[in-house]
Structure formats: structure tokens, C-alpha cells
Write a protein that binds this DNA or RNA. Structure first.
Lengths: 192, 192
DNA sequence: GAACCATACGGAAAGCTTTTCCGGATAAGC
DNA sequence: GCTTATCCGGAAAAGCTTTCCGTATGGTTC
């Protein structure tokens, strides 16, 4: 039903450029001032008017979603490279570490996920859809190589890491990683 | 340094009544419309003007914090009763279940905790301060009774349950509890 | 390379929410 | 009952997101 053959027109270049500029600016601002930073700050950094922001991202949450989805994509895309460069078990460990770092660093991600705002309902689905296959492939390889016990669901592991590594105000550093390790330990023993 | 002896005057009764009404109304509204519900909705339900709300809770987040802290208190206070009525291991299990239910049910709690807003910085500290001792006592009893292995830090366990049970949009029901069980499993095996 | 027009831009204004302010009310103490 | 510190209520201020629309501009066509 999608008519990709009859593409009527290409999107204007300035429009595409502005979208990129907005995403870049938003990523920066979210990093420095948090996801609650006023939209003005983002448009100023991007050198663009507010109207332009809302043309491309009708709601504020759309921009946040887009920034996060971009980073999830980057995380998923890191898997093949790791699989090619390292032994299966090592590749899995490194990827999980990258995931943990992403979740721990991007405070806005945890905030959006737990906000309860319906606008972000699709986010955890996207997270799962993109990262699930990536993790599954790494997991399968590790299991096949006998470096990891079978019986671990990629879905469960993904959520668990995402949740455990979400940063809390005054928690000791390294908590997320420690707990993740403990969880994997549990999964191994639970695997019988 | 606190001069509780020289209490100059008692807080007016209507003031205290309004604070209670506001907390009750807020709890209800947060439950039905979420923590992002407009303040107006709360003051209307409490039968009070906005000015009154802001007199007692200078910032919106103060009200949210107060509601959450109230529930944390209730959770902590449930521990002694459970300890009195059940065997140590059972009491621990039931209390953890209550904690899990609290975290899973009160979406606003997870949202506040992960929001990144400095206004909620003290919240995880309060959570730990109130619930840590409660859990520690239950844990100690269970360990002493030989029903639970030693080597589990109350702090780690508390945070882990809080994080794992925080609800995500489309996650399967029971995930939090399943993961918590897995984690305890891991802690047991890690206890050597 | 000029003219046309669909598409995109910018920023002013509207719409909501939170937060402040202050004249008027009312418990508490005498 | 009178006094006074404290509190109440809601109107106004402030701040943010979102809408709107006249203007500008990239793409296409001749």
C-alpha cells in the first residue's frame, strides 16, 4: 500500500539540513541542560526559528524521541563491528557494556522511558525492536561457542540492563555494572 | 541547635487540615490523571485555592515529593507487623513483594526518581534512609534464622528492586517480580 | 537564467501551567 | 470580645509550548 514509486518530490535541502542541525543541537543541549531545557535554547544553538522546530517535530516529545532513537540506532549498529573484531563472549560483554554506558549516560532516556507520558509509549518498543535482534545475535554466537549458558532471553536481559543502569541521583558509581554482572550470574545459575 | 522547646505557636488547624486535604487529593489525582495533572485539578478536589497549595508546597515538585514520602513511610511501617506475624524468610519475601507492588503501581515514583530534576535529588536518599533499616532488620533476621544466605547488602537489594520493578509502557506483567527473583538467586550464588 | 510555486522559514501571538502577590478572612491567645 | 499572627483565595505575572501566517527560498521548467 505504500507508494514509494510515486515519490512526488524530494524534501528540500534546507529542510533536511535544519532537521540535522536541530537533532545535533538538541543532543548537545539535552546533555548540558537536561531534556527539560527550553526549546528556545535548542533553536538558538541550531540557528533556527521556533517555527522550524515545530514544523519538523510537532511536539516537544517528538524531538526527544528522535534524538533518543538516533542513539539507539548507533548502539545497534555497533554490534556487527564488535562481533567481527572479538570472540563471541567478549563481543557480547563489550556490547552490553556499551549499552550500559548509553543508558547510564543519557539521563533523558531513562526519564522519557519512565515518564508515563503516552507520547513515549512507542519508545520501549523501538528500543526492543532495534536492540533485541542485535543482542540476540551476539547471544546466540556466545551460546554456540559455549562461552555462555543457554536459556537467557534477549528481551529480559535488555530490559534488565536498561533498568539497572538507569542513573539515580546519589547512587554509587558502578552500581549498574555490578548489578548487571550479578544478574548475568543469576541467569547462568538459573540456566541450570 | 533546634529550639523545639520555644515553640512560639501551634500551626493553625485549618492549615493542617488543608495540607492533609491537599495530600489526599494529590494522591488521588496522581493516580487517575498521572503526576503531570494540572495543579488546578488537585486544588479543586481538595476544595482549596491555588494560593493555599503554593503556600504549603512552594513548588509543584514539593507536593509530589510529599505524596511519595508518605507512601514510603507507609511501606517502611509495614515491616514490623510482617516480622511479627511471619517467619523471618516469609516476612522478608512478603515485604519485598509489597515494595515491588508499590514501585510498580506508583508510576509517578519512578518518573520522579529518573526525571533528573534536581528538585527530586533528596528522594532517593529518603527512600534509602527509610527503607534501608526496615529491610536490613528483615534481612538480618532471615540470615540469622538460616533462611537466607549472608552477603547481601540491603542498599543494593533496595535499589535493584526499585529499578527492576519500575513499570515500562508495554512490558509483560510480572517482569519485575521475575527479575527480582532472578536477582536474589544471583545474590545467593554470589554469596558463595 | 528567469519565472513560477510548492515548501520551508521566522518570530509574533495564543494557550496552558506554574508561581507570585496581596487584600481580606479567621484561628489562637488573652 | 479583641488583637494579631497566620492563612486563604483567586487574580495577575511569568515562562514554556504550540499555532499561525506573511515572507523567503530551493527546485523545476521553459
Amino acid at each position: 500500500m505504500t507508494e514509494d514509486t510515486a515519490a512526488p518530490r524530494r524534501k528540500r535541502t534546507d529542510a533536511r539540513r535544519n532537521v540535522e542541525a536541530l537533532l545535533d543541537a538538541a543532543k548537545t543541549v539535552f546533555g548540558t541542560s537536561g531534556v527539560d531545557a527550553p526549546a528556545k535554547e535548542i533553536t538558538d544553538l541550531a540557528g533556527v526559528g521556533v517555527g522550524t522546530l515545530y514544523r519538523h517535530f510537532p511536539q516537544r516529545s517528538d524531538l526527544i524521541k528522535a534524538v533518543i532513537e538516533r542513539e539507539i540506532d548507533a548502539c545497534a549498529e555497533a554490534a556487527p563491528a564488535l562481533a567481527a573484531e572479538h570472540a563471541p563472549g567478549e563481543a557480547l560483554a563489550r556490547w552490553l557494556d556499551r549499552l550500559a554506558a548509553f543508558v547510564a549516560t543519557k539521563r533523558g532516556f531513562a526519564a522519557a522511558l519512565h515518564s508515563g507520558d503516552p507520547a513515549y509509549d512507542g519508545l520501549s518498543g523501538f528500543f526492543m525492536a532495534k536492540l533485541g535482534p542485535a543482542l540476540e545475535s551476539l547471544l546466540d554466537s556466545a551460546v554456540t561457542a559455549g562461552e555462555i549458558r543457554a536459556g537467557v532471553s534477549p528481551q529480559d536481559l535488555l530490559y534488565a540492563v536498561a533498568k539497572l543502569c538507569a542513573p539515580l541521583p546519589d547512587e554509587e558509581p558502578g552500581y549498574g555494572r555490578r548489578m548487571t554482572a550479578l544478574l548475568v550470574e543469576g541467569l547462568r545459575s538459573a540456566g541450570r
